[in-house]
Write a protein that binds this DNA or RNA. Structure first.
Lengths: 204, 204
DNA sequence: GGCCTGCTGTGACATTTGTCTTCCCATGCC
DNA sequence: GGCATGGGAAGACAAATGTCACAGCAGGCC
């Protein structure tokens, strides 16, 4: 391995971002060429600096890291994507794979894993926690339809049926139907539990 | 300053904990003498290694970092406490001060702040983000009574009135009364919004 | 063409939730 | 003693929520 690995790092928490950048910078074969704290900056920055690998958090201000990953796949196909997230949710992993990510790492693990994962991804490997992969397979695909997700997502902060109806441009009666369907499919008793369950599985 | 600053680090996210430990370890005058990922281990570890300062996250498995801080105040008074948290919630800051913390840092800021804050706390200063202090003062104290907090906390995951009543050993009618009071005091429209608001302010 | 699925909408119904008023009882304060 | 305060509880009522059955319409599949 002769040349240095160029890394783009997207992470919203300043202290985490700075710490990871410093740590990876200590490795001789790794160089951080861009740091962003907002999902909307990922693609423009990547196009500007052309990194070998993008290290993306999922939950960011602006666009989600998963959306950005899908975009990078088409706009900068030579750039690998390694998702780095707090939550090892089955649905997240599934969506990451569909978005063309080469790896999926949870922030719970030891720091040493990170540089190792970067190198393995660059070597062409797929890096995925085996336990998480098993969970994603056993959990099955997302049972919620697009509309059900929309409505449930609009219900997160305690919005009333009328609020949700206005937000998604549907009749209040229809909103209640979708909520009822989502509650049924998630096996829960009310929308609050349904939201919890959907979040837990990475279905939103 | 002749001797080295001994630091105990409590943080649940493995990667964050490792990264912070490595970073602080790079400073010549700082040594990490203990790392814990569980709130229940803070006090025992502190008593064992007797650090000069404890760097505590608030939201941990086991005991909250705030509870541990209050305990350290009495069990190991010579140990300063610096709270390091994701969420700059007014209620958290207030409770941290009441628990005898010497500083309150949010994880959003740059990493350089951390070592600086540690040194300043050890020098006897109080380290608090001025904007956050202002917010905490303007927000006023927690308006919720103990019971209202209990009931609201039991309502977080979509529990029904009956569930909550069973959990806190109250009559369902009383639970509804408290929920109504909490909704009124938070200026919200339903329990879901009330829970959000209370969380936001660090009142739970 | 038939069949299924998904999206949108209604109306009716039972249940849950939120609000208000009232009550009892203990505590503490003057 | 007199009196406010706060926790706990009940009942009554209106509003919101969850369920169900049904219906029209589009698209995809065999």
């Amino acid at each position: 391995m002769s040349s240095v690995i160029k890394v783009l790092l997207a992470e919203d928490q300043g202290m985490m971002r700075g710490a990871l950048a410093l740590l990876l910078g200590l490795e001789e074969d790794i160089e951080i060429v861009a740091q962003v704290g907002d999902g909307d900056e990922i693609v423009p920055q990547a196009l500007a600096v052309r990194p070998d690998i993008a290290l993306l958090d999922i939950e960011l201000p602006g666009r989600s890291g998963l959306d950005a990953a899908a975009d990078l796949r088409t706009r900068l196909p030579e750039c690998r994507v390694l998702i780095l997230t707090t939550f090892g949710r089955p649905g997240y992993l599934r969506r990451a794979m569909e978005a063309g990510a080469s790896g999926f790492l949870v922030k719970d693990g030891p720091v040493e894993d990170l540089a190792a994962a970067v190198r393995r991804v660059l070597a062409g490997e797929r890096v995925i926690d085996p336990a998480l992969a098993a969970a994603a397979l056993s959990a099955g695909p997302n049972p919620l339809t697009q509309r059900e997700r929309d409505v449930l997502a609009a219900a997160v902060d305690g919005a009333t049926v009328a609020d949700i109806a206005a937000k998604v441009h549907l009749s209040p009666a229809t909103v209640r139907n979708y909520l009822s369907a989502a509650i049924g499919k998630t096996g829960t008793r009310n929308r609050m539990e349904a939201v919890r369950a959907a979040r837990q599985n990475g279905w939103l």
